[in-house]
Simulated scan of single mutants.
Amino acid sequence: MRQERNMVILGMGYLMEYIYPCYKHMLGEAAGRCMAAVTADGADLARKQEKFEFPVILDDNAGALEQMEPEIILFAPPPAVAPGLIEQVLAPYYRKVRERGGKLPVLYAFPPKPEGRDYLEMLGNDILVANILPNMVSRIAGETLAGEGLTYLTFPDEGPWPKEERDYLLEFFSPLGGCIEVKPAHVMQMLAGTVTVHNISEIILTVSDALERSGNPVDFHRIAGAMRAYHQKKWSYSPAGSAPCREDEVE
């Protein structure tokens, strides 16, 4: 599935640095010539330029698109900035590509809003776009999460993706673990659940601290393992490749 495709990142911030293994997985040594990234953070520009083998440009989204003629655009600005960039940068570029008869870039959109259907309305219903929430938890206590970590993909209901493009997207994010599709109608519930789940780590640490103060110390890893085991038993759900866990680890 690996193949050289020109890619441009619009919004080279923490998230796009985090998914660096995905670029390398798909492009290998070609990343240096097949990619370019744009950042609005002038104070951190030098560090990013030194860290990555591909060009990192300051505040020239349109120039990066014209220079690279990307097959994939990774769109990752802050949500508040996204609508303006869609109107001022993406829409004019997609019009130019159509006018010269080129292939329209596939759009990987990382802000949870706008939704896919909004991109179709603003950029044209002939584009391919997906909202993506990458898996941000791939290792815990040095252990790789083979089953629990998932990247969430949301495709607009208005148009199916060709199989080859969907397969490429799945392979692109495979270094971060598995992928799951979330329908547009359920995105906000999924985000709410994901945010809530992040509080569980604080609960586990609080329980561990309380047990220690009461003279019954239990390592927080064991508490987490017991919680995971109870959850899997309760819902008859154990993800493939899940790390071992036991319900009786905490007396």
Rank of each mutant, 00 (worst) to 15 (best):
E29M: 05
L128N: 14
A229N: 12
R213V: 08
G13H: 09
E251S: 13
I19W: 05
P70Y: 07
G101M: 10
A76I: 02
V250M: 03
S238K: 13
G147L: 03
N131A: 10
V81C: 08
E164Q: 14
P111H: 09
R5L: 11
P21Y: 01
K233D: 15
G13F: 04
P244C: 11
E143P: 01
L107I: 00
S174E: 05
L45A: 03
S242N: 15
T194M: 13
A229R: 12
V137S: 15
K103E: 15
A43S: 13
L74H: 11
N125Q: 10
M1N: 09
L191F: 12
F52T: 04
L145H: 09
V250N: 04
M12K: 00
E247A: 15
Y94W: 14
L27M: 05
F173K: 00
H186S: 13
E143F: 14
A76G: 11
K103V: 14
Y168V: 00
A64E: 07
P239S: 07
E164P: 06
N199S: 15
W235R: 14
E29Q: 07
A210C: 11
R222L: 14
R166N: 04
M35E: 07
G42S: 09
P112G: 07
W161D: 08
S208Q: 04
V81L: 08
Y108P: 03
E212H: 10
P112F: 09
P134H: 02
T196V: 08
P77K: 07
P77C: 09
E164R: 03
D248S: 01
F172C: 01
T194Q: 13
M7W: 12
E53P: 02
Y230C: 14
I140R: 12
W235I: 13
F173P: 01
I19A: 02
P21C: 02
V207I: 14
F172T: 01
E66H: 13
G159F: 00
L176G: 02
P111T: 06
N216V: 11
Y119S: 00
G215S: 09
P156M: 07
A229Y: 07
A82F: 01
V195R: 03
L133E: 10
H25A: 13
L107M: 05
C34W: 04
A226S: 15
E87F: 02
E181L: 09
S174N: 05
E202P: 01
V195T: 12
R139M: 08
A40D: 10
F110P: 01
L169M: 11
P105I: 01
A37Q: 05
D209L: 01
A76M: 03
F110C: 04
V187E: 01
P184K: 04
A192E: 06
F172E: 02
D167E: 15
H186E: 10
A243S: 15
P112T: 10
E143Q: 13
F54I: 00
L169A: 00
